[in-house]
Design a protein around this nucleic acid. Structure first.
Lengths: 219, 219
DNA sequence: GCATATTTGTCCGTATGTATA
DNA sequence: CTATACATACGGACAAATATG
C-alpha cells in the first residue's frame, strides 16, 4: 500500500513522530488528538494510529479518557514533584557510585560545553536541550539500559512541563555552572560530593519550576 | 458488540489478562503468540489484540520481531544483571531516605509475616510472591508513583526469569530472614544500615540467580 | 532452489455506544 | 431532548514477508 521506507513497525514510527511533535511544543498540553484528523494528517489508518496512541499513553505523554479520546497530558504540580523524586533517586544514585573514567563522563563534558556555547548565543532552548543531555548522561553512569530508558520517558514528561511554562532562560540558564561543578567533582572522583551537589541542584530546579507553576496558575 | 462489564479499554484488559498468563507461567519464554490464535482464544479482533501486544512489548514482557510476530521474552544473564542494577538503585535508595513510620513499613511487615507463614507450609511459590510484595513495599517508601510503576514492570520481567529456572525454594526461601532483618532496621530508623543490608541481599540474590542460569545453560 | 501456504502489516467499511452541542 | 460527532470495536481484504514442503 502506502508502505514505504524503514523496516520498523508503523506504530513505532508514528509514536516517534508524535513524540517529536510533543516535546517540540507543536502540540500543546490539554489539546485533544482526533483519530480521524491525525490518521489523515499522517496518511495512515486509524488502527495504526491507535497503536501509536497506546504507546504514548503508556509513556505518560498522552492521556486516555474513556469514549472521549486522547489528549496531550497536562502536567500538574503533583507531576513535577513526582518526577523530581525520580530524578533525585536516579541521578544522585548514579553519581554516588560513578567511576570517574566512565565513557558517559565524556558525554557529560560535551553537554556542558555545548550548554555554555548556547548560553553565549542566548539560545535558551539549546541550553535546555544540552542540560537535559547532561542529566541523561549522568544516569548513563549507572550502566543500565532500563534505567536510561525510564529516565528518557520521565525527561520527556518533564519537558512538557517546561513548555507549559515557557521561560527557558530562567529555568535552564542558571544551572549550567552547577552542572559544570558536578562534572568537575565527578572527573576528580569525588563521587559523594558530586551526588550531594546534584541533590542541591535538583532541589533548586524543582523549586524554580513549582514557583513558575504557581505564578501561571493564578491568572 | 461483545462489549460488557468494565469501562476500561479492551486493549488494557487484554494486556492485563496476557500479563497474568505470563507471570503465572502459563506462557513460556520463547513461545510465539499467533495473532489469529489469540484473537480467537479471547474472542476479540486482531486489531485490539495487536494494541495489547504493543503495550506488553513496551513492558519488556513480549518481544516483537519484524514480520515474524511477537514472542514471550527470554531473559538472559544480561537481563538479570541489568534488572539487579535497577533494584539496587531503587530499593537501596528508597531505604536510605526512608521514614520509619511510613505507611509502607506496615506493608513490609505484612509481607514478611506472610512469607514466614508460607515457608512453614513449604509453599515456595507463596514465599516468592510475598518476597516480591516486600520489595515492592520498599520502593513504595520513596512515595513516587512513577518509581513504583517502573519497579512493577521490572519485577514482572524478573519473574519471567524465575519461572525459567523453576527453583522457587532455593531462590526465595533463604532470603526471608534477611528481609526480616532489613525490616527491623527500618522500623528502628536505622536507614543507612538497612540500605547496606539490602545491597548485600541483592548481591546474594543476583549471584544465586546467575549461578542457576549458568547451570541451566550448559545442558 | 522453488512453489505454496501461512502469517504479519496495513487499510477500509461499518455498527454501536457515548458524549456534547 | 434530539441530533450530531466521535471513539470503540469488529470483520474483511490484500500485499508483503516468512515459513514450509
Amino acid at each position: 500500500m502506502t508502505n514505504t521506507m524503514e523496516t520498523l513497525p508503523l506504530a513505532d514510527r508514528l509514536a516517534r513522530q508524535l513524540r517529536d511533535l510533543l516535546i517540540s511544543g507543536d502540540l500543546i498540553p490539554g489539546q485533544r488528538l482526533s483519530e480521524a484528523a491525525f490518521s489523515e494528517r499522517f496518511d495512515v489508518s486509524r488502527n495504526s494510529l491507535r497503536e501509536a496512541f497506546r504507546l504514548l499513553t503508556k509513556d505518560g505523554l498522552l492521556r486516555h479518557e474513556a469514549n472521549r479520546g486522547v489528549f496531550v497530558s497536562v502536567p500538574t504540580m503533583a507531576t513535577i514533584i513526582d518526577i523530581y523524586r525520580v530524578r533525585r533517586m536516579l541521578e544522585c544514585g548514579a553519581l554516588r557510585q560513578a567511576w570517574h573514567q566512565h565513557p558517559a563522563v565524556r558525554t557529560m563534558r560535551e553537554a556542558v560545553e555545548s550548554a555554555k556555547a548556547k548560553r553565549e548565543q542566548a539560545d535558551w532552548l539549546g541550553v535546555g536541550s544540552a542540560n537535559m543531555m547532561f542529566h541523561a548522561a549522568v544516569v548513563a553512569l549507572s550502566d543500565s539500559s532500563r534505567l536510561s530508558e525510564f529516565y528518557a520517558h520521565v525527561a520527556a514528561e518533564l519537558r512538557l512541563g517546561f513548555l507549559l511554562l515557557d521561560d527557558p532562560e530562567g529555568l535552564h540558564a542558571p544551572f549550567v555552572d552547577l552542572n559544570d561543578t558536578i562534572l568537575g567533582l565527578t572527573e576528580k572522583g569525588n563521587a559523594h560530593e558530586a551526588a550531594h551537589q546534584m541533590e542541591a541542584y535538583l532541589n533548586l530546579s524543582e523549586r524554580a519550576i513549582l514557583k513558575a507553576f504557581e505564578r501561571s496558575a493564578d491568572l
